[in-house]
Write a protein that binds this DNA or RNA. Structure first.
Lengths: 338, 338
DNA sequence: CCAGATTGTGGTACCGATAACACGGTGGCG
DNA sequence: CGCCACCGTGTTATCGGTACCACAATCTGG
């Protein structure tokens, strides 16, 4: 018989006390005589007893489980977020259920339903889009605290950890302007993602401030991944007056965009300069290429998880936290700066 | 009152049946009259009832939870493994608890203990080293099936999904030989990791077959990450007769090694040619550099998880599976081939 | 020296579901 | 027309812990 079938009652029997006393020993409550404690501990190790968190959770109404939901773990930005979140959670003795929604609202809805059924104690989520609000409302109904990471959602009231999307975008575009570019394209995902909106705002602000009229043809919507970036750049390159520089909403889009430039027989930055949000760290170490507004992905994860833990433990402040983390502007080759 | 406090009894009361009948409706067991079913479903949606998997798990002795344990999620190889595993698990209606051990045996021991307490139904693990055997034995004692990914451990009897480490290593080194290199360095992690052993065997086999004597000075042990790679390469560069080419045990080590070469004012591949295991996908898309034996990371994840699910459901074959997945040899610039 | 507090321990109920069995009602069949 | 199988449903016990209260024994202080 495997020790997984050993229960608190078996331990109680072997050590000649009641299950309740064993429970006290397991939980380090005081009120147990040293002698009894010793006997119980002896029995525990003899039987190889491991208390079931399942049963404990049911009884205490606490599972010791969080969840981290991201649209794509393979995006280095989210990988770092997840890794950091897992570490903070583990240190606080929580387990992390990882969910990769593949940026699919339906999947997101389903996993959130599952997590509720699982009675996770909290969720750190980079939501698919504003339309995630519906699922998040479910969490609220069920009293599950959550923290938004990277993306905020209007009307959803909770702690949020964001980057400075509009400021960062503005800085990136201003950099291109300073290099003399006047026709600057923008490849961005749909407007129901807050980062897309904010970065678009930054893009527009920079151009307007420079007295450059906005040309709608220069702004292309695309999926937030390499294939989207590729498609978006292809469209921009087909324009009669094509842009001399392009700003992409994130790192993976930049990747696809660069591939499209090369596929057209052109080169970055010679024919098209390029800047984007978020780095691909290992790529940059190998070959510093992307000029990017790098966001402190790790901090998104650690901070988000810490805020969540505070909420769970009821230590959170009354008002919501909205943390905005500044990015770091890294000039490399893709922008063509000397 | 939030619906999370709604129990099967509340539903039963509202619909005028017993809890058992509600349970039958939830679980789609037959034996419920259409009329009753309708009434119960009505009550469920009216109350916003979501059955607790916790309670169900306790009663049925199934949690619907797996775990994936890796030494470093941020390594693109493991990121892909994790992502694929999560998807397969989700499709099979399992949740995935992610654990990143940071290649630390102590952490690994602790998380495995936690997972046992959590009563996960199975584990997919890329173990830290052979010394992980102790922890794995715990899983066996508790009847928790597990599948080893990427690394096998002598004496541990379970399903395994591996790459062809020795064959792949041999091919990489033979490629260097064919380019005329005779002094080929090897930066490798400690010998208590099966991939390290196997790759070392492949390295030695290739040299021996070419009639080249093994020079112990050319083989350096290092941590399996960029800093290890950097340290390892630094040591090789200090040799009186330094290698003209280097083989590193994996992608991240290669990264560090390249940085060390550059720090020494040299270049890859001009001054030192370099080959390694595992690609850094996004980096290669941006700038095809690493000549590498690419392993199908995704398949490691999907296959490993599928094997695990079979074991869990008792469908597994009697004998253990040992799957060896072939790699794909990608020649890029770092080896200096034309 | 005794009331009252404190300590160590046990009993019982319950967390929220399900397994196993029981039971009345209906319909088929000889 | 009576027996039996099956159908739909309920009852009870249980999964493995813990909360809460009770209680005897010991301790404290006036």
């Amino acid at each position: 018989m495997s020790p997984s079938n050993t229960t608190i009652r078996d331990v109680a029997r072997l050590s000649g006390v009641s299950p309740m006393t064993v429970s006290r020993v397991i939980n380090d409550s005081e009120r147990v005589s040293p002698e009894t404690r010793r006997r119980v501990e002896q029995a525990i190790s003899e039987l190889g007893y491991v208390p079931s968190r399942l049963a404990r959770g049911l009884s205490r109404q606490r599972t010791g489980t969080l969840s981290v939901i991201v649209p794509d773990v393979a995006n280095p930005f989210f990988t770092a977020v997840v890794r950091a979140a897992e570490e903070v959670a583990r240190r606080a003795d929580y387990r992390v259920i990882l969910c990769d929604t593949r940026a699919d609202l339906g999947v997101e809805r389903d996993v959130i339903a599952e997590l509720i059924a699982h009675r996770v104690e909290g969720v750190v989520i980079a939501p698919v889009s504003d339309r995630s609000a519906t699922h998040l409302r479910r969490l609220t109904e069920f009293g599950v605290p959550f923290v938004l990471i990277d993306r905020t959602i209007p009307g959803v009231d909770c702690d949020v950890v964001l980057g400075d999307s509009s400021g960062g975008a503005r800085q990136l575009v201003e950099h291109l302007l300073s290099l003399g570019h006047r026709r600057i394209g923008f490849i961005v995902e749909s407007d129901d993602v807050s980062t897309a909106r904010d970065r678009r705002a930054g893009y527009e602000a920079a151009l307007t401030a420079a007295g450059i009229a906005l040309d709608p043809a220069l702004v292309t919507n695309a999926a937030p991944d390499p294939s989207g970036g590729s498609a978006g750049m292809a469209k921009l390159l087909e324009l009669e007056k094509r842009p001399t520089a392009v700003f992409t909403v994130n790192n993976l889009v930049a990747l696809g965009a660069i591939e499209a430039v090369r596929a057209a027989g052109l080169e970055v930055p010679d024919d098209v300069a390029l800047v984007c949000f978020d780095d691909i760290e290992y790529a940059s170490r190998l070959y510093p290429f992307l000029t990017a507004m790098e966001q402190p992905a790790q901090t998104f994860g650690t901070l988000g998880t810490q805020l969540l833990l505070e909420r769970i433990e009821g230590r959170g402040p009354d008002r919501r936290h909205e943390v905005v983390l500044p990015g770091e502007f890294m000039i490399r080759r893709s922008c063509g700066a000397k």
